[in-house]
């Protein structure tokens, strides 16, 4: 029991350290790498919570399948939607959205 609590405490400390790191990184200009770093750290934190706090690691494969298929479906939603946005105006017949007429 105590061992388990210690392990979770370790994860908690790690999560807080990652939070500190990502918050600190935001004040440096890293260009687009910054976005990758921030999302990477957030992804790592979420993974830690899911695998250890929510015990996906120790769960049945059925439960893991739930989490994985939700992510596959997110991928599907993003992938097919962006296949529209990234290809607007490829052949010149439809315009890139938005037609930039306004001042912004």
């Amino acid at each position: 029991m105590t061992w388990g609590v210690l392990r979770h405490a370790g994860v908690w400390i790690l999560l807080l350290l990652l939070l500190g790191a990502t918050a600190a990184s935001s004040s440096f200009d890293l260009g687009e790498n910054g976005a990758v770093l921030r999302l990477g750290i957030a992804g790592l934190q979420v993974l830690l919570i899911w695998l250890l706090f929510m015990d996906l690691l120790g769960s049945s494969s059925l439960v893991r399948l739930c989490a994985i298929s939700a992510f596959l479906w997110i991928l599907l939603l993003f992938g097919l939607t962006f296949s529209d946005y990234f290809t607007r105006g490829w052949n010149g017949t439809s315009t890139r959205y938005p037609a930039r007429t306004a001042t912004w």
């Binding site: 097919l80 946005y85 959205y97």
Partner: peptide, 22 residues
């Protein structure tokens, strides 16, 4: 059934590539 939704948007301004794919 989840891969085809764009066929409702052929004339609504979706890109032509997306039209073909959907």
């Amino acid at each position: 059934g989840f891969f085809v939704w764009g066929h409702h948007m052929f004339v609504s301004g979706e890109s032509q590539f997306a039209n073909l794919m959907f």
